[in-house]
């Protein structure tokens, strides 16, 4: 069952469309990623889901409710972590948790929540005295304290160091394990690939692709990437004729070929025939990064 339904959503600022006809459904219990370059309209889209913005066109439903018309109903079942939002500087962690718990009709007990998020030792610390990672963990706690059915996390791990980022990821997996649906906005490929069941790649306010992470990788270009530096240049056209190659180019002397396992064999045969040595030959699996670059137009 879809818990978030976005249909034909459009939103412009000063005549410039930020979201230009977005349609997607988030199924209950999944981690749904919205991935896209900066300025693609990701945040605007989830702000419409959170009821912070009124769509120009289209409909948004959260558990069947309109986030603008039924603001109270939606905010009771939706927890949000916003980009670039802070709390009162002198508010302590305990006070923030108690305050936000008082906002909801059936809040979670914030003590075990703080425990799971590693905030127990920081309950008496004021917001301004928390590190970036601690602030983010507090925001996750506040998003969950109302016992929501859906949480929207916008650029959750931006500004975190790699270790804190990995901790946060396992936390999100815990959240989903408790049956909470997660709508995750990110521009980190690694994060989307690791966490998301499905990903909507958004570019210029539209959905460029919507699939599972592995589906996106398969869909965009070859799944196998072969790179090497040949000892002498290869004749043009020879690369393009390789079986299974969907992309082959010479980048300043370094050859990059996207293709299949067959392509790998064909490349080796080709090199042997011309007695060319391949320096730093690498055969790797394509990542979401490659798919993303293929799917979104190059930003100049």
């Amino acid at each position: 069952m879809a818990i978030v339904e976005v249909d034909g959503l459009r939103k412009s600022y000063g005549g410039r469309p930020a979201v230009d006809g977005l349609t997607f459904r988030v199924e209950e219990g999944e981690i749904f990623g919205i991935l896209g370059p900066n300025g693609a309209g990701k945040t605007t889209a989830v702000e419409c889901v959170e009821g912070l913005r009124t769509p120009d066109e289209g409909t948004v439903r959260v558990a069947g409710l309109d986030p603008v018309a039924d603001h109270d109903g939606v905010t009771r079942i939706l927890g949000a972590q916003l980009q670039e939002s802070e709390l009162q500087a002198k508010l302590t962690v305990r006070e923030a948790l108690e305050l936000y718990a008082a906002f909801y009709p059936r809040p979670a007990d914030w003590r075990p929540l703080a425990e799971r998020l590693g905030l127990t030792g920081k309950l008496g610390t004021r917001f301004a005295g928390l590190s970036g990672g601690q602030k983010q963990r507090l925001f996750i706690a506040l998003a969950l304290v109302g016992n929501p059915r859906v949480v929207v996390l916008d650029e959750l791990t931006t500004g975190l160091d790699p270790r804190a980022r990995r901790d946060t990821w396992s936390l999100i997996e815990d959240v989903r394990a408790r049956g909470v649906t997660v709508l995750l906005v990110t521009h980190f490929m690694e994060e989307a690939q690791r966490l998301c069941d499905r990903i909507a790649v958004v570019d210029k306010g539209r959905i460029a692709a919507l699939d599972t992470p592995s589906g996106l990788i398969r869909r965009a270009g070859g799944a196998t990437v072969i790179t090497f530096t040949p000892s002498q240049p290869l004749a043009e056209g020879e690369l393009a004729g390789l079986p299974g190659a969907v992309l082959a180019e010479d980048r300043d002397g370094r050859v990059v070929i996207h293709g299949t396992d067959d392509t790998v064999n064909a490349v080796i045969t080709l090199l042997a025939r011309h007695r060319i040595t391949a320096h730093q030959l690498r055969v790797t699996e394509a990542t979401l990064d490659d798919a993303f670059l293929d799917l979104t137009e190059e930003q100049v």
Binding site: E50, G51, L52, D72, T75, R76, L78, G79, A80, L82, S85, E86, L87, Q88, Y100, F103, Y104, P105, L142, G146
Partner: peptide
Amino acid sequence: VLRRMATTP
């Protein structure tokens, strides 16, 4: 701070 609160009931 106001925006954060606007996402609650």
